[in-house]
């Protein structure tokens, strides 16, 4: 069924924020095609009458009391940051806008 093109792989890489190389595009296109072919088998038994399972345990309503718990200090929060400034995470300029 699937016949995934190089362009499609490039689109996926863009969605997934991976700056893949041209060489990778070729390798991944072949491999994804092969894997998707193999996994498409799930369609054979997935009839409309079968409900999907999203969770391995049938729990519901797990809530936390609305009580403050100590978190991290600003120093701890920023300790792993590639760059920080004025108590904030410093990141390269953001294009586009908030959603």
């Amino acid at each position: 069924m699937p016949n995934i093109s190089r362009d499609e792989v490039a689109h996926l890489a863009k969605l997934a924020r991976l700056a893949v190389t041209d060489e990778e595009l070729d390798v991944f296109a072949g491999q994804l095609d092969q894997i998707l072919d193999a996994v498409a088998k799930v369609g054979e038994v997935a009839g409309d009458e079968i409900p999907p399972t999203s969770h391995a345990v049938p729990l519901t309503n797990v809530f936390r009391a609305d009580e403050i718990r100590p978190g991290l200090s600003q120093e701890q929060a920023l300790a792993g940051a590639p760059a920080a400034e004025e108590g904030r995470f410093r990141v390269p300029r953001i294009l586009g806008e908030e959603q």
Binding site: R17, L18, F28, Q31, V91, P92, I94
Partner: peptide
Amino acid sequence: AEEVMSLSREAGFGAEVKRRIM
């Protein structure tokens, strides 16, 4: 930021991880 994200993820992840993400 968007380019730095993509380039960093490309540099930081190995082939199997990228394959599965895609």
